[in-house]
């Protein structure tokens, strides 16, 4: 069974939020939407035991939000602290201004930046590029499944998807269940004689490594 990956969408403009929701639903994501930072923080807090979005798209300027007690910087800082393995894209009309970029990167040093002026389609295309990752002889399809290209075998666990999507970065897993899933994925790679192997760095930190001599792209 495949669980649709969750995406957190934080946008104060109703029309834009609905457009984004539609775009991501068509890509088979499960959107968690928030029109204010307060609502986004509440979603993260209330769902922390049941869901971990693979992706968050955060509008930097939330001035139209009904509640301005918290802002997008607070959301980013919370994502960095509590869901460090969630890919974060921050988009803004002023993404070229170094002060805006500095504030974003201080709140979430790993956040990706996107220019809002490029439009929603460009954002969704970028997400697709980020999630349809290829590593050695592995490929992630639509952010939901890891495929071993030579055998077409599939591995469905979302922690495996996280590892491939984040390659070559280190991913920290936060539960025994997740680390067991990661180890099973490592065994799956060995069984399939994959050109990719799992590297354990201790303290629940893992990353993937492509064996030397293996092609970076199997196709």
């Amino acid at each position: 069974m495949r669980a649709n990956p969750e995406v957190l969408l934080v946008e104060d403009d109703v029309e834009t939020l609905e457009q984004l929701r539609g775009q991501f639903e068509r890509k088979r994501f499960h959107p968690l939407t928030a029109r204010s930072a307060t609502r986004a923080l509440s979603l993260i807090e209330n769902n922390r035991h049941s869901s971990r979005p693979v992706l968050a798209v955060v509008d930097w300027d939330l001035s139209k939000a009904s509640d301005n007690h918290w802002n997008s910087s607070d959301v980013l800082a919370r994502l960095a602290r509590d869901i460090a393995d969630c890919l974060v894209i921050v988009y803004s009309q002023n993404i070229d201004a170094f002060r805006v970029r500095s504030e974003i990167q201080r709140a979430h040093p790993r956040a990706w930046l996107h220019d809002k002026r490029d439009g929603d389609i460009s954002l969704v295309e970028r997400v697709a590029r980020l999630l349809d990752q290829r590593v050695g002889d592995l490929r992630v399809q639509e952010g939901t499944v890891v495929i071993h290209v030579p055998t077409h075998d599939e591995h469905h666990h979302r922690e495996a998807v996280r590892l491939v999507v984040h390659h070559p970065e280190i991913v920290t897993f936060h539960s025994d269940t997740a680390t067991k899933a990661v180890r099973r994925f490592g065994e799956w790679l060995t069984r399939h004689d994959s050109s990719v192997r799992l590297v354990s760095l201790g303290n629940r930190k893992y990353r993937l490594a492509v064996l030397s001599g293996a092609s970076a792209d199997p196709e």
Binding site: S73, A80, R101, R106, A107, I170
Partner: peptide
């Protein structure tokens, strides 16, 4: 609470300036 102050073992470069 900002992400730049999160404790982490990854290789870090501290960039210190007055305006970022």
């Amino acid at each position: 609470q900002l992400g730049v102050f999160l404790h982490d073992r990854v290789r870090s470069i501290v960039a210190v300036s007055e305006d970022g």
